[in-house]
């Protein structure tokens, strides 16, 4: 359904899938080029650009100085004037240095100019915890950008979607921010060869179920699917929705699911309060699905703390499979 021209598939890692999408885009369109810190000979901090510099040369795989604000702004300027830049933040945390260009410029330029221009820039944000890199290298701040009209914010959870959504992002006439969980980079999955897109703004039901809807993002999709498997053994039938896009949010898919299951749990890695789950919960409370709810909505999100260095503390900071199982069981059996 998603794919336009799907051909044979093979296993690729999430990082390889993104690299392939960038290579295909550069081959198809001369305007596409990459910018970022150490994305050339170094291959990127997570080896996502890998050897692309050998194939496309340093003019299309451009190392920038350590200048996030300037670099992101240059990408915005190039996009407004006809190029198709893909800008990599080395860690999503460093995008905080570039918020001005993202939030005040990229997001608003078209609107402020009354539609006279568009800003077809793509920015990539390696995010999330689990690597022991502590408080300034582990955040999940996608909700920040989701709060800004003018931006599109996506969080593919599989190699298939990473490639297809990135290609869709490059086609998109507006700024698209792609949050990539670092732990997913090595995850493998079936990826079609060649060009295809996965639409921005469409959630995907990853598992059908009757008792509870879990809406999860990014790595939490996989944790929720693992939890659903365990819960199935107890006779609890969980539907897992992969949100895929934070903005614009696919309300319909979630509403339909909640009308069917009558229970909703949101699972995401970003800090719980004022996060993606708050929006989903409020959206359901405002919708026709509210009348179908048999239990209060539950949010499982990150703890109200920076990400700690110690590995045990770090794990305790974000939802884990056991916690999802426990919360789902309580929700469905009415124990809460």
């Amino acid at each position: 359904m998603d794919a336009q021209v799907e051909t044979a598939t093979r296993e690729l890692s999430y990082a390889q899938a993104i690299q392939e999408a960038m290579a295909i885009a550069m081959e198809r369109d001369e305007r596409v080029f990459l910018m970022g810190e150490d994305i050339g000979v170094y291959g990127g901090a997570f080896q996502v650009t890998g050897d692309l510099v050998e194939r496309f040369g340093p003019d299309r795989v451009m190392d920038t100085p350590i200048s996030e604000l300037g670099g992101a702004g240059v990408a915005v300027g190039a996009a407004v004037t006809g190029m198709r830049p893909i800008f990599e933040f080395q860690f999503s945390d460093f995008a905080t240095l570039a918020m001005e260009q993202i939030v005040n410029q990229a997001a608003k330029m078209r609107y402020m100019l009354g539609g006279a221009v568009s800003v077809p820039v793509v920015m990539r944000f390696p995010a999330g915890s689990g690597t022991g890199a502590a408080a300034q290298h582990s955040q999940s701040l996608e909700a920040w950008l989701g709060h800004v009209p003018g931006l599109k914010v996506i969080q593919p959870a599989t190699p298939h979607d990473a490639k297809g959504m990135l290609l869709a992002a490059i086609e998109d006439p507006d700024p698209v921010m792609i949050y990539e969980h670092k732990i997913l980079y090595k995850m493998k999955g079936e990826v079609p060869e060649g060009y295809y897109t996965v639409p921005i703004g469409k959630a995907e039901v990853r598992r059908e179920g009757a008792d509870l809807t879990i809406v999860a993002t990014s790595i939490m999709v996989h944790k929720s699917l693992d939890a659903a498997k365990q819960l199935a053994e107890e006779g609890i039938d969980v539907e897992v929705i992969d949100l895929r896009t934070v903005r614009p949010m696919d309300r319909q898919t979630i509403i339909e699911s909640v009308c069917k299951t009558s229970r909703l749990m949101c699972v995401y890695e970003g800090v719980k309060t004022l996060g993606v789950g708050a929006e989903i919960s409020a959206m359901i409370a405002e919708s026709e699905a509210f009348d179908y709810l048999d239990a209060p909505v539950v949010r499982l999100g990150g703890a109200e703390t920076p990400i700690p260095y110690n590995p045990e503390l770090e794990k305790a900071t974000v939802p884990q499979v056991d916690g999802i199982v426990k919360a789902a069981r309580e929700l469905v059996t009415g124990a809460r």
Binding site: I66, F94, A133, A134, A135, Q136, P306, P308, Y309, L313
Partner: peptide
């Protein structure tokens, strides 16, 4: 020094006047 919260990248000893390592270049 950081009670296990900081690790190498945030090492600090405020008692000897070290306000801390930093994970942000230029921070």
């Amino acid at each position: 020094y950081c009670r296990g919260r900081g690790g190498s990248m945030h090492i600090a000893d405020v008692s000897t006047g070290n306000l801390g390592a930093n994970g942000i270049v230029g921070g």
